[in-house]
Design a protein around this nucleic acid. Structure first.
Length: 673
RNA sequence: GCACUCGUAGCUCAGUGGAUAGAGCGUCUGCCUCCGGAGCAGAAGGCCGCGCGUUCGAAUCGCGCCGAGUGCACCA
């Protein structure tokens, strides 16, 4: 498959303002001039005595120059002494030939603190994405049951990437695809209409059907059980199973009472899903309904293009006889069990279109190359104040959605193959640029540890290592709302307000899902997910709240005015910057780079790790700001105004950057817990 | 069979070419007259799955194994 396009952009321009980058660029160009090299890579020395950053460039030069690396390093050091390098205090050579550089800390700290103070919530942002529109589709949960923690992982990754790319200057559109015409919705409809008495009489009156819903449960929870029950019933009840095809057929026809009922079921479930993810601070710009893809005839248009380009062929023989297929893989081949085909069917022999077929048309719409559009109407205003729009048969034309330069589909890794086919078909249609700009953000799934499964009542040995896949059909899984509720309950004892409790629970869950690489399976364990100490979102929030608390105390004592912008702008930095201070400032500076990394990898994981490291260095600074002193003095009780103001400025810089980082992770920073 | 992903401390994970491989949880030992103890300081715990290569230098790159998982539908 082609390389994801996000690896291609050149972000060099955006690093020009980083203080360390400025310093390293000057050192690098000086070294390049001396050695005649083109590039110098820097890294961090293992020991603080060596300096702030170093390079092994002399080691690789040893072979070229056929001289000892130590000797080269010494020569470079001597040459560098003749050049004026601002911010560099000292150059040290260590075996086997490293060049180490010491920074003039007071100047460095001052310029960085001033930068954070000036840029505030903009600190760390860049504009690499300027002028480019990215459409990110995520969540995409079948609207037939409650969301489980696997769906939650998808939504958290998707929403985090939306936030990161916005901070990198892209124009981002977040879409949530609603498959309201698929078998899963049909199954719940079958269950509601035909599984229990009273059976639907075909009258178009659904009052008796809705009355089956046990209102002591939310609708999505009730459907969760109903769906797993009907899946079991199918095994023994062929008559019921036959109803599925009927319902599916009516839903696709869209011109009958059952189709309207199905839409009503799906809509109600979508509302519950939006409520669930809303608790986690996740929002969208647009809901895209599969029924509208049918209605607007997207497939027909795409199909004509595919035929015109010869990308699809009609099979007159072989295993796919009577189907329109796209050639793929090895094509038709013989196996022990007979003829098999790796080609992908887009139109079945009964004339209906497969999901992949619809997806090709839909992907074309996302890039604005289908030549057709949805109709839209306002769904409502979300809790964050933003409008949420939806495609709709009764909507109006609008020019603002789709037409993206890049499209990111957040779908679990099991669908890599079909995504590949969709992008490949785009290429076959002549949309090579669009195919290249299509990204499958393929994260790994969430499974249950045996212990977690045992807690849910599954018949497994909870003491044994191993995992259980979640399954909607079996009704096996941890529901998102259950996890949130459990956390809220645990946290509420020690948190002052209900609002803070909810934010903190969301922080814990988002952090838990974000810290693990998207390429790694999450083996869900209750103890781990509910933990509030150590490497958690709660710890990060706590550090932030503590910083706010210090600043508030200082404010109350009249030491400075928090509301008054720029009070720290001209902060004086003492001559001796302590190690904890230095570590904090260096970590603060890393934020912009971490944000870029998250954007490049399309993953919240780097930001989560960074947030924890930032919280840790801050806590160290707070506990022990001056390790050489006999006694640590609380910042607000420092008598000397220069030192006190400086330490408070560092607290404020930390507070700002932690808030920015949490925001990128979709976590609301708390002033108080 | 083919393809992709994963394998690092008892457990959960960072680290993707640099110097002595890091965190958290759990275990053990200490620390609340003090800005928020959801914390801090310390101890113990590693053939970075195995082998061969590339390189001055490999957990990191290449090849080959081993183990775990996923995909290869006229399901989505």
């Amino acid at each position: 498959m082609d390389l994801p396009p996000f690896y291609c952009y050149n972000s060099d321009d955006d690093r020009k303002e980083d203080v360390t980058q400025v310093i390293q660029d000057q050192v690098a160009s000086a070294i390049n001039k001396i050695l005649g090299t083109k590039e110098v890579a820097f890294n961090t020395p293992p020991k603080r005595e060596f300096g702030d950053f170093s390079t092994a460039v002399c080691l690789s030069q040893a072979k070229v120059q056929k001289r000892a690396p130590m000797q080269i390093a010494e020569d470079v050091k001597n040459e560098l002494a003749k050049v004026r390098l601002p911010y560099i205090k000292e150059v040290i050579v260590t075996p086997p030939g490293y060049l180490n550089f010491k920074i003039d800390h007071p100047r460095y700290v001052k310029s960085l603190v001033n930068k954070v103070t000036k840029e505030k919530e903009l600190f760390g942002r860049t504009n690499v994405g300027r002028g480019r529109k990215v459409l990110i589709e995520h969540t995409n949960v079948n609207p037939n049951k409650a969301m489980h923690i696997g769906h939650i992982r998808n939504a958290i990754i998707g929403d985090s990437v939306v936030r990161v790319l916005e901070k990198l200057g892209y124009h981002v559109e977040a879409c949530n695809y609603i498959d309201d015409t698929g078998v899963q919705v049909a199954d719940v409809v079958v269950a509601m209409l035909y599984m229990d008495a009273p059976i639907y009489d075909g009258s178009g009156d659904f009052n008796a059907i809705w009355a089956k819903w046990d209102k002591s449960q939310s609708f999505d929870y009730w459907c969760w059980d109903v769906y797993s029950r009907v899946a079991q019933e199918y095994e023994t009840n062929a008559e019921l199973k036959a109803k599925r095809a009927d319902v599916l057929h009516m839903v696709e026809a869209q011109d009958n009472a059952v189709a309207d009922f199905a839409k009503e079921v799906a809509s109600r479930i979508v509302e519950t899903h939006l409520a669930t993810v809303g608790r986690l601070n996740i929002y969208y710009d647009l809901l895209n309904w599969e029924s509208d893809i049918f209605h607007r005839g997207f497939w027909k248009t795409a199909f004509e293009s595919l035929k015109a380009k010869g990308a699809v062929v009609y099979e007159t023989e072989g295993p796919n006889k009577g189907c329109w297929i796209v050639k793929f893989g090895r094509g038709v081949f013989e196996t022990e069990t007979g003829l098999k085909s790796e080609d992908k069917v887009l139109v079945r022999s009964n004339g209906t279109v497969t999901y992949t077929g619809k997806d090709i048309a839909y992907q074309m719409w996302k890039f604005g190359v289908l030549g057709q559009d949805f109709l839209y109407k306002l769904w409502g205003i979300q809790a964050n104040g933003d409008e949420l729009w939806t495609t709709s048969q009764s909507g109006v034309e609008m020019g603002r959605f789709g037409k993206a330069d890049k499209v990111i589909n957040v779908i679990d890794v099991r669908q890599s193959y079909t995504q590949h086919i969709v992008y490949d078909c785009l290429k076959k249609l002549g949309f090579t640029k669009e195919a290249r700009n299509s990204v499958h953000l393929d994260y790994e799934v969430v499974v249950l540890s045996n212990a977690a499964a045992a807690e849910l009542g599954v018949d497994v040995d909870g003491d044994e290592a191993g995992t259980q896949a979640m399954s909607g059909r079996k009704g096996l899984g941890v529901k998102g709302d259950d996890l949130i509720n459990t956390l809220v309950k645990r946290l509420s004892e020690k948190v002052q307000t209900e609002k803070s409790t909810n934010v903190l629970a969301a922080a814990a869950i988002r952090y838990f899902m974000s810290r693990i690489s998207t390429s790694k399976m999450i083996v869900f364990d209750f103890d781990e997910a509910l933990r509030t100490t150590g490497d958690t979102g709660v710890y990060c929030e706590y550090a932030h709240a503590r910083a706010c608390s210090i600043l508030n105390r200082a404010n109350e004592a009249g030491l400075f005015d928090r509301k008054q912008a720029g009070v720290f702008r001209s902060v004086k930095v003492p001559d001796n910057v302590t190690l904890p201070e230095e570590n904090l400032v260096k970590k603060v500076e890393e934020f912009a780079g971490v944000l870029r990394k998250a954007g490049k990898e399309l993953s919240p994981a780097p930001l989560a790790h960074y947030a924890f490291e930032l919280a840790t260095v801050f806590t160290d600074f707070y506990e022990n700001p001056d390790p050489d002193a006999e006694k640590q003095v609380p910042f607000i009780k420092i008598e000397e105004p220069v030192l006190r103001n400086y330490r408070l400025a560092l607290v404020d810089a930390f507070r700002q950057v932690m808030a920015n980082c949490l925001d990128a992770l979709g976590i609301v920073p708390l002033e108080r817990i």
